[in-house]
Design a protein around this nucleic acid. Structure first.
Length: 811
DNA sequence: AAGCAATGGATTTTT
DNA sequence: TCCATTGCTT
């Protein structure tokens, strides 16, 4: 159970003086496995970094004995920044990083044992998809039956579950074929010397699993393993941790691994769709026989009206580890709820409210607008733009994902590895060199027949087409020679000129931004070289980290090094910068850290983002918009309980972003996919404590489309409509009549609510031979086109063509 | 080989 | 509605 006593020598430490008892207990835990349940705004990162600092300061571990894992580069950086502000320690020498960053470091150190070229390149999601498309074309795979996107999802999913093609259980022909493609994809990657994100993890895991000395080495080395956002780990990541901690099937009793400190919040698990398993938390407690569990429930972020709302909402989820946020701050402002007639009006209201907040002295960057899906940003952007209010949208392409940058990177990769066919295909005819699809197909067939790369197959190519491609290859080869020995900056500048990329974009009418980005790439490379300290004195770095250790002290004999191909880099804690060329390091950096995705960073601007991307952030004022059935909870997640509970957690995350003021709004109508949708307010409103809320718009008439064109929105606030949706009047907009989803699609203004269609009227009860008794929700069209949306209690909502369905009116 | 119209699909995202 | 992708035209 929780350990609240603190060792004497630690109590005096200034590191601990400002921590609350739970935080202090977590920081000063003994070297045993522990789970920290860290609520939103409870000082989680602080606990993690202070824990590391405390361990180091008290000589309980050396910097080399720490392994600290995060999911994002941002989190890793923050941890390093905070740590170095607490202690004079070289954080870059320590194993603090993302899962993928650390796996990359590990694989570079043991590239021979991992059966990889030392300068292997990393495929990002885009690259992976194009590699799969290329593979499919090559093997004439029907892309109707096997869409590349779906194959990508399949392959990534297998890897996340730790499965190689041989391990995948294929029960049907389709899966068998997918597994074959998976197998071919692996061979292709291996041949080309590239790995995708999943492969970084999987291959690291397998190397640890299958190589006893390497596993033993790392198990002995990492005395303290700290995992951030543990609820987001997938199967493979959990297995990887288990392996490193010596808890897996390969655990050796004589040589116990390090202590695992898992920090997470099951209530903030919102990434199930990408393979995250909250269940890892419970598994961890069971499989590691965790004796220490500490809950951090004291919240330092929000006023209690906000926290009460969050607590009340999340209490509707089952299967929680259980946690309640509390604060010493007062109730603060009530949570304001606004109902608007349209998404447009919702945005208008928001802009007005924001202006007021800004007048009251709140910075624009302290105001965030959160939405469930990206498509919702459009209306809001328009409203902000028209009001001339600066704003910033998160999401979209990041720097290293832009087309022109990807092109430049492809050239750079070809300099390093001519066998990188993905890069070859990307730029062989860009800028255009008169190389057509026909001749490239020829080249690909030739390469396939000889089992070599496209680059190597060129020499065997004949004819005029062959000459053009040979010209390209020669260009790359010449460039490689000319840039050898140059520094990174000069390599990139030279490449940008000689490839013709710059010339191409300079000639393009709208190419100015792209030219700018390419020039930015040179600066990015320069600052990368500065930061990573290439050319820095390696010995000096080792000393400053206080980490100078002989191979033997790290558990490896010189013999092991000979025998198992463990590179010296690993023994100086695997800093890849020591042995890799700056170019390879930069390319790796580009793949693992795609860069910023915010436009106009730094300006005082309203922050727009999805709820997902708001995780981990906080703002003085937060607007949660589109809180409607079908949108939030999203219709695709509402069918099963797990999906709905994840939506609820998502809402929990959204609510807990706010420090002072929280607004939640929903709209009766919304433009989505070119159609006006009529949405009901979200069920989540019913799960919030009424006493913490303030309804700004308790009264609105039923939407005009339901009542007839004449009645507008404006008069709404004055009419005597109370308590949720209209149960007065005959327009019949009753929430109870609608099934989950509550959305009525309106097509070309043919919806009828006030007249009969083929003898039916809305709200009428009908009988269907198969579905039983149901209620008509919507009628649209006329004659043979007439359709009715009917809610059958047993079978859900159906759209039935009235010319086909046999319906009997029920009195 | 480039440019344009038709087509289809449209939660959420990091590495 | 609006975006990316694709097939077809010039």
């Amino acid at each position: 159970m929780s350990l609240f006593s603190t060792p004497d020598h630690a109590a005096q430490s200034p590191l601990l003086s400002t921590l609350n008892p739970e935080q202090r207990a977590a920081v000063t835990l003994p070297a045993e496995h522990a789970l920290i349940l860290a609520g939103a705004g409870s000082g989680k990162t602080r606990v993690l970094t202070t824990r590391i600092a405390w361990l180091l300061q008290n000589g309980l571990v050396t910097p080399g004995g720490i392994l600290a894992v995060t999911f994002t580069n941002k989190a890793a950086k923050e941890m390093m920044t905070r740590l170095s502000s607490m202690l004079p320690v070289n954080v870059h020498g320590m194993w603090i990083g993302t899962f993928h960053g650390l796996c990359n470091r590990f694989l570079r150190s043991h590239f021979k044992m991992a059966n990889l070229p030392q300068s292997f390149q990393i495929l990002d999601t885009q690259d992976q998809l194009s590699a799969i498309k290329r593979l499919c074309k090559q093997h004439a795979i029907d892309d109707e039956r096997f869409p590349p996107k779906q194959l990508q999802w399949f392959i990534s999913g297998c890897k996340e579950d730790g499965q190689r093609p041989a391990n995948v259980e294929a029960r049907d022909d389709e899966t068998r074929r997918k597994v074959e493609i998976y197998q071919m994809y692996e061979e292709q990657c291996q041949r080309e010397g590239v790995v995708d994100f999943g492969e970084l993890m999987l291959r690291s895991y397998e190397l640890l699993r299958d190589n006893d000395p390497i596993r033993a080495h790392y198990q002995r080395r990492f005395r303290h393993i700290l995992i951030d956002e543990f609820q987001d780990t997938n199967r493979l990541q959990y297995a990887w941790i288990k392996m490193l901690a010596g808890q897996g099937a390969n655990a050796s009793p004589d040589m116990p691994g390090g202590a695992v400190l898992a920090v997470g919040d099951d209530d903030q698990s919102i990434y199930a769709f990408r393979g995250a398993r909250v269940g890892n938390m419970a598994d961890f407690v069971r499989e590691f026989h965790v004796q220490h569990q500490i809950k951090l429930e004291q919240n330092y972020r929000s006023y209690s009206n906000i926290l009460d709302s969050a607590n009340a909402l999340i209490s509707h989820n089952g299967n929680r580890l259980g946690k309640n946020l509390r604060t010493d701050q007062g109730p603060g402002e009530p949570v304001r709820v606004y109902e608007s007639p349209s998404d447009y009006a919702e945005a208008q209201w928001m802009v007005d409210e924001m202006k007021q907040l800004h007048r009251e002295g709140i910075d624009r960057k302290e105001i965030a607008v959160l939405y469930r899906s990206n498509a919702q940003s459009r209306v809001i952007e328009t409203a902000l733009f028209n009001a001339a209010m600066p704003y910033r949208v998160y999401g979209g392409l990041r720097f290293f994902e832009r087309a022109e940058i990807k092109h430049a990177l492809a050239y750079l990769r070809l300099l390093e590895n001519p066998n990188d066919d993905t890069s070859f295909m990307r730029v062989v005819n860009f800028p255009a060199r008169g190389i057509g699809a026909r001749s490239l197909e020829q080249l690909q067939d030739l390469a396939k027949a000889t089992g070599c790369s496209l680059h190597d197959a060129v020499s065997a190519l004949t004819g005029r087409a062959g000459a053009a491609i040979a010209g390209f290859v020669a260009k790359i080869d010449v460039l490689r020679e000319q840039t050898s020995g140059l520094n990174l900056r000069d390599i990139i500048s030279r490449m940008l000129e000689d490839s013709g990329l710059l010339a191409h974009y300079r000639a393009e009418r709208e190419g100015a931004d792209r030219v700018e980005n390419l020039e930015e790439l040179v600066s990015a490379a320069e600052s990368f070289v500065m930061q990573e300290g290439f050319g820095r004195d390696a010995a000096g770095m080792t000393q400053s980290a206080g980490l100078t250790q002989s191979p033997a002290s790290q558990g490896l004999s010189g013999e092991a090094i000979e025998q198992y191909g463990i590179e010296p880099t690993d023994l100086t804690f695997g800093d890849t910068g020591e042995t890799l060329s700056p170019l390879v390091a930069f390319l790796t950096h580009a793949a693992l850290e795609a860069g910023d995705n915010m436009a106009q960073a730094g300006q005082d601007a309203i922050q727009l983002m999805t709820v997902h991307s708001a995780k981990g952030l906080e703002f003085d004022c937060v607007f949660i918009t589109g809180v409607e059935e079908g949108l939030f909870p999203h219709e695709n997640s509402m069918s099963d309980r797990d999906g709905l509970e994840e939506e609820r957690r998502l809402m929990y995350v959204a609510i807990t972003r706010a420090r002072q003021r929280l607004y939640m709004s929903h709209s009766q109508t919304r433009m989505l996919h070119g159609q006006t949708r009529f949405n009901l307010k979200s069920r989540f409103f019913d799960e919030l404590p009424e006493e913490a809320l303030k309804w700004l718009t308790p009264k609105l008439p039923a939407p005009a489309a339901f009542g007839g064109a004449g009645r507008g929105w404006q008069g709404g606030n004055a009419s005597g409509y109370s308590g949720g949706y209209g149960n007065q009047g005959s327009s019949g907009f009753e929430s109870t009549r609608y099934p989950a989803g509550g959305t009525v699609r309106v097509e070309k203004e043919v919806v009828r609510r006030d007249e009969s269609v083929n003898g039916l009227v809305v709200k009428q009860k009908v009988f269907h031979a198969k579905f039983g008794e149901g209620t008509v929700l919507t009628l649209e069209g006329t004659g043979d086109d007439a359709r009715a949306q009917i809610n059958f209690p047993r079978h859900g909502t159906k759209w039935l063509a009235l010319s086909v369905a046999k319906l009997t009116p029920v009195p």
